[in-house]
Design a protein around this nucleic acid. Structure first.
Length: 794
RNA sequence: GCCGGGGUGGCGGAACUGGUCAGACGCGCCCGACUUAAAAUCGGGUGGCCCUCGGGCCAUGCGGGUUCGAGUCCCGCCCCCGGCACCA
């Protein structure tokens, strides 16, 4: 009789062993010493410790990473799999405000609790590399990196319209405004003119479109599409229009240079500097009002609005004088903020022309060829565009160019709980960097850190007052803090060298481990975190800090876990933690269940109902392995029906996890194996099958697998080599021959795998059932698929 | 509108390069064993319709096509999910 399966005891026992041994610590390579070539960096997006518990979505995410980790480790890879905390930022700060404590304390408490949960789930994490973004030893280097960006003109300060969240009382980056609302709290954002710090992400717009991946790297098409759309590259031309009244040129951007002869008027965005400089009073008045409104609001207007400026622009291709209007359907931050209007071939220009009774001129006919376009008539549109741009280029009035939709990343935040921006403002010297040896600028205590529309750090006057590092005169600190996405843009580099106090990281070790071999996290970060991290790495590569240009070789997005139909999230308050289930059924059952629920990349509704099936499977596995240990001889035989099934299971599980990144089907495969084994525990090959089943389930259920490994007489399964399928066992001596008549299966029977095509046909024709369908007639055609089927066509 | 991903039983889903009556594995449901009984456990059944119990027909969003053979390939629709969108 097998002892009872007591997951709580078993799990506590093995977790203690792994902890004592630091079983999942992966040492860094040392220069000059031999290093394992086969290395693997397994990374999952780090959690916000804004609440006291993980939710089941996290459990899915980290268990997937865990399965990868175990399989890779046991397959001979040197695997690093770190963990840390995205501790700074709004989520944690808002939680602290809600609960009425200091963010530092709330975050520290949450980290304790979540770390304990992670250990309780038995994840194979290298805890020696743990980092937290609110630790001065970490954010010192966040500040250092900021200074590098500034020094390299990739960070700058400017006054610009920015998204302001009235609830969170801070600026929000474009990337985290979703449908005009703050991604964090769902409040509609407002447009505010503010002086802010920006990262010049646009400098890398083109490179961010090109995935500079290692040979075997792969990003999902889905993710690349989202990023591509976000970056929004359009090829077109910049064309100069002369405004004689002002003695100036204005540039327009167009993707339709082929329609240049069709331009009948000209439009400036309200914010275009030319308006304030030269336009009529009426036009200026309109521009002041219109420019203050957010784009979504402008777009929602049913009628186009605008005012004539009193000025004219000369079309460089034909010398026509076009009236210049100012209208809010033209946006300052795309292209040049000015357009040539072609009402016949652009819907919006058409609407505007209709509203203000302006002429339209058709220049492309139904066949897509240029008409009314002087010497360019008859050219197909694409060619016409090229020719026209070429002609303008001769006159230095135009050139082919590319425009992007991507904007620079605004990253200064008017909140307390973040990394201080190490800048000092001096009346005489302007903005001055805090000298490197004075880093970190520690986040000071403030009396009141509640959001109030301006930076809470400004409230600490003693901290704010500082001597200018350049001239020694009176100066003030920058009171804004950094967006938490700055921290997460490089944390994966710090993991690799988290004890380094001389530099953010050492290039040698980072170049060894990175790019991250497998990154797992939510697709909601496709245009934010994932893009920012790529930007950071490209910049650091340009400065020679590291030797690669992409941070993540492979990216996988788990689906959301939904509850009541909507994504689990703190804002919705529909969180479900794993604790109750873990307590009841153990970590192994929860880990298996969450992965068994469905394909990991699809959304799934959380229901604990099916966990019973997994518990039944674990109990069966427990019982069957004990029975085998009692009944079947050791070492036993590696041949027979069970052994073959076991080998097939090895091949399936390995391929699914490593190549297909599919986690639910391996569980089915092992279930099948265990079921078959249960009916033949005293077979000579039962022991081999039992060992295989235990070994294959270890990445999913490491505790029970370890215990059963012991029952089978072995030790340290977490270090045991991953099983390899015996190829000779996969090749069957016989196979089930399917015989079809007209494509319909009429008979099936075992046949020797060595038979030739002729022999198979002969065999098939002997079948009684087939004969009755053939009805004595000769098949018109016979198709033979070796080792599969014979099909008679009559 | 443009770009990307999907549509298979009561449910989650499997079928990886066109080839084993499509539906693995699990949930749920039904039947049985054990039990005084229930739970637990174990065994069996479970796409639909028809049936003379041999089997037959229909089925992978809809309509066509290619092929000896299509969930898988091609063409045309419909629907769902995600991204972008007054972006010139």
């Amino acid at each position: 009789m097998a002892p009872r399966y007591e997951p709580q005891e078993i799990e506590a026992k093995w977790q203690r062993v792994w902890e004592d041994e630091q079983a999942f610590h992966a040492p860094n390579p040392v220069p000059g010493a031999p290093t394992p070539e086969n290395h693997w960096y397994q990374l999952e997006m780090l959690p916000y410790p804004s609440g006291p518990s993980l939710h089941v979505g996290h459990v899915l995410n980290y268990t997937m990473g865990d399965v990868q980790t175990h399989v890779r480790r046991r397959s001979g890879w040197h695997v690093v799999r770190p963990m840390g905390w995205d501790a700074f930022g709004l989520p944690a700060e808002n939680a602290a405000i809600r609960e009425g404590g200091h963010p530092r304390e709330i975050v520290a408490r949450n980290i304790e609790l979540i770390r304990a949960q992670m250990k309780r789930l038995g994840w194979a994490i290298d805890w020696e590399r743990e980092v937290s973004s609110d630790d001065p030893r970490f954010y010192r280097w966040t500040q250092w990196l900021f200074l590098k960006f500034w020094e390299n003109d990739l960070a700058y300060r400017k006054e610009a319209p920015v998204n302001w969240c009235p609830k969170d009382q801070t600026v929000v980056a474009n990337e985290y405004v979703v449908d005009g609302r703050c991604e964090r709290c769902g409040t509609p954002v407002e447009l505010r003119q503010m002086t802010q710090w920006f990262f010049r992400t646009t400098a890398y717009a083109q490179e961010l479109l090109e995935y500079d991946l290692p040979e075997d790297g792969a990003w999902l098409e889905r993710t690349k599409t989202i990023q591509r759309n976000w970056i929004g590259r359009s090829e077109g031309a910049e064309i100069l229009f002369r405004v004689e009244e002002a003695g100036e040129d204005i540039a327009v951007f167009t993707t339709r240079a082929d329609t240049l002869f069709g331009a009948t008027f000209f439009v400036l965005a309200p914010e275009h500097p030319f308006v304030e400089a030269h336009a009529s009073e009426e036009a200026k008045e309109y521009a002041r009002h219109a420019g203050a409104r957010p784009v979504e609001e402008r777009a929602a207007e049913t009628k186009k609005t605008g005012v004539f400026t009193g000025l004219h622009a000369v079309n460089p291709i034909n010398g026509e004088k076009l009236p210049i209007w100012v209208a809010d359907y033209v946006l300052m931050d795309y292209g040049t903020g000015a357009i040539m209007a072609v009402p016949a071939h652009d819907e919006r220009d058409g609407e505007f022309a209709e509203e203000f009774v302006l002429p339209a001129k058709v220049v492309i006919d139904e066949d897509g060829k240029l008409v009314n376009s002087g010497g360019f008539d008859g050219l197909p549109a694409a060619e016409g565009a090229r020719e026209i741009v070429a002609a303008l280029e001769q006159e230095r009035r135009g050139r082919a160019t590319v425009s992007y939709r991507l904007r620079d990343w605004s990253f200064s935040r008017q909140r307390y709980w973040g990394c201080p921006i190490p800048v000092i403002y001096c009346e005489r010297c302007g903005a001055v960097p805090v000298p490197e040896d004075e880093l970190p600028v520690l986040l000071p205590e403030v009396e009141d850190y509640a959001p109030k529309g301006k930076a809470p750090l400004a409230g600490n006057e003693e901290w704010m007052r500082v001597d200018c590092p350049k001239c020694g005169g009176e100066a003030q600190r920058e009171p804004d803090t950094m967006d938490t996405f700055v921290d997460s843009s490089w944390y994966f580099l710090r993991y690799i060298d988290s004890d380094n106090d001389e530099a953010p990281f050492d290039r040698f070790v980072v170049d060894y481990w990175l790019p991250v071999d497998q990154y797992i996290g939510g697709i909601d970060h496709a245009t934010g975190h994932l893009l920012y991290s790529r930007f950071f790495v490209k910049a650091m590569n340009d400065w020679g800090m590291l030797g690669f240009r992409e941070p993540f070789a492979r990216v996988f997005h788990q689906g959301w876990v939904t509850l009541g139909g909507s994504k689990m999230s703190k804002t919705r308050g529909n969180l479900e933690g794993p604790d109750e289930l873990v307590e009841r059924y153990g970590a192994d059952a929860v880990r298996l269940y969450i992965l068994f629920m469905g394909p990991a990349d699809q959304n799934m509704e959380w229901t604990p109902d099916g966990v019973e099936g997994i518990v039944r499977f674990l109990r069966r596995l427990w019982r069957v392995v004990h029975e085998v240990a009692d009944a079947a001889p050791s070492p036993g035989s590696g041949e027979g029906a069970l052994a073959r099934k076991a080998n097939e299971t090895i091949a399936r599980v390995t391929d699914d996890v490593l190549r297909r990144f599919q986690f639910h089907t391996p569980i089915s495969a092992v279930m099948e194996l265990v079921k078959e084994l249960g009916g033949a525990v005293d077979a000579p090959d039962a022991r081999f099958a039992a060992e295989t089943a235990v070994s294959l389930i270890q990445p999913y259920a490491p505790h029970v697998a370890e215990e059963l490994w012991g029952v089978l007489g072995y030790e340290r399964l977490w270090e045991a080599p991953w099983p390899e399928a015996d190829e000779s066992q996969l090749v069957r001596e016989t196979f089930e021959l399917v015989v079809q008549v007209n494509g319909k299966v009429r008979d099936r029977f075992e046949a020797d795998a060595e038979l030739t095509e002729e022999e198979l046909v002969a065999l098939a024709r002997e079948s009684e059932r087939v004969r009755s369908y053939l009805d004595g007639s000769e098949p018109r055609k016979t198709i033979v698929v070796p080792r599969k089927l014979v099909n008679f066509v009559i």
